[in-house]
Computed example of a mutant assay.
Amino acid sequence: MTIAITALAAVAVSGCSNPFDAQDVGDPDTDPQETEAPEDEGAAENEVPAFGDIRQEMFSAMLAADSVTIDGEVRAGEADLDELFDGVDDDTTGELTITGALDGTESEMSFSAGGSSFTQRAVAGQEYFRGEDFAALLVSELDDEVADLVEEEFVEETISDNWVLFEDSGGSVFSAEEFISTWRSELTGDDVDAMAAHAEEREGETVWVYTADGGESEFVVAADQEPYLLEITDEDSHYEFTEWNASEPPEVPTDVITLDEIFGAIAEEQGWEPGALEDEESDDGGAEHPDA
């Protein structure tokens, strides 16, 4: 009997991959789409600039910030959570939180939907995955051959109370910078630049509110200081941006386990020689059962 240890390793790698799509993200300083829009005289009269007039300044200011906290609701299909976890429908709405440094270092990202969740943390140049979430992901992705050998309860007991350390991962997670850059690439075009605009007082702060699609889409921008986005409401999604330049970094986890330690614990529990999962790899990419 062979052990598909490569499947275990593949799950470990996919578990820390970027669950969101940030394709077509341009450089904020060189993106050819960034052009100065003509001044809207009507907006100027109402002291509310057209979205096209502040777009470049807004995204430049946001991408230059040190840190931010983003809380929102998004469908599981948009976050690919339906692909990571069995039983999660792509229409299920989940909760997203990104907090800490804008570039994904010294930050944390979590997503939950349909009873499934994951949390990634980057701190002090290392990347961690919350053990409870990783155990569920690992168990759900085990192929039948490995699942017959490894008990789910043992995997959960071994991993759940720890943070799984991904060594040599680069020490960053999906970042607020990538999230903001994705919106920057999407919020373009004449219709977007000419969205209806008005000023409001919200929680004692003057904001500019831009709406489209008959009011179903709304973008709230700070008016008194830097033009940071404060809220986005778009179709089935809603996000809030808080703690600009004041979002605290996460702490270094105290209870940590590595992938090698997880595999070593599985080998020991099965009565195999230490390192059997790594040392018994066959030439065709499989791994021979130590007792076969």
Rank of each mutant, 00 (worst) to 15 (best):
A292G: 14
G189M: 00
I5V: 15
N18F: 03
T254F: 10
E73W: 12
A267W: 02
A37T: 01
V164G: 07
I159C: 01
A113V: 13
A61M: 11
L96W: 09
T97P: 07
E235P: 06
A10F: 06
E251C: 07
T35Y: 01
R55N: 08
F179W: 14
P32I: 01
T6N: 09
P274V: 00
L277V: 07
E106N: 15
D284E: 13
T93F: 08
D284I: 13
T30N: 00
E36S: 00
D236V: 09
I159K: 02
M195C: 08
D213G: 08
P38Y: 03
R130T: 07
T119V: 10
F118S: 03
S67F: 09
E178G: 06
L137T: 10
N162A: 06
V192Y: 00
A64T: 13
A12K: 01
D82T: 09
E178C: 01
E281M: 13
R55S: 08
G286C: 02
N162L: 04
D21V: 13
L259G: 03
D103M: 08
E218S: 04
C16I: 06
F179S: 01
D89E: 14
L229E: 00
T233C: 12
Q270V: 03
D234R: 10
V209L: 08
A44T: 04
L149V: 13
Q56H: 06
S14E: 10
T206Q: 15
I70G: 06
A176Q: 08
E95Y: 08
T99F: 04
Q56M: 14
E95M: 03
D193R: 12
T211S: 15
E186A: 09
A50H: 04
D86C: 05
P19F: 04
I5F: 05
E34Q: 06
P249T: 14
T254L: 13
G42V: 09
A197Y: 10
S247E: 07
A79V: 15
F154P: 01
G275Y: 00
V11I: 13
A10R: 07
E288H: 12
F59D: 00
I54P: 01
D21C: 10
V139N: 15
D291R: 02
P250W: 06
E156T: 14
D144P: 00
T97R: 13
E41V: 07
F59H: 02
Q270L: 02
E95P: 02
S247P: 05
E34K: 05
S107N: 04
A176H: 11
P227T: 03
A196R: 04
G42T: 05
E132M: 12
H238R: 14
S117K: 07
H238L: 14
W244M: 05
G104E: 13
I159L: 11
F129W: 13
T97Y: 09
A65Q: 11
Q126N: 15
L230S: 08
L138N: 09
V150D: 00
E34D: 04
T182S: 11
A135R: 11
A292R: 09
R75G: 04
W183Q: 02
I262A: 09
E83F: 05
D53F: 00
A265M: 03
E167G: 06
A43R: 15
G100T: 09
P28I: 05
M1G: 13
E157F: 02
E73L: 13
A44G: 02
L84K: 07
Q120S: 11
A135L: 12
A64H: 05
E201D: 15
P253I: 14
E201S: 11
D29F: 03
A43I: 03
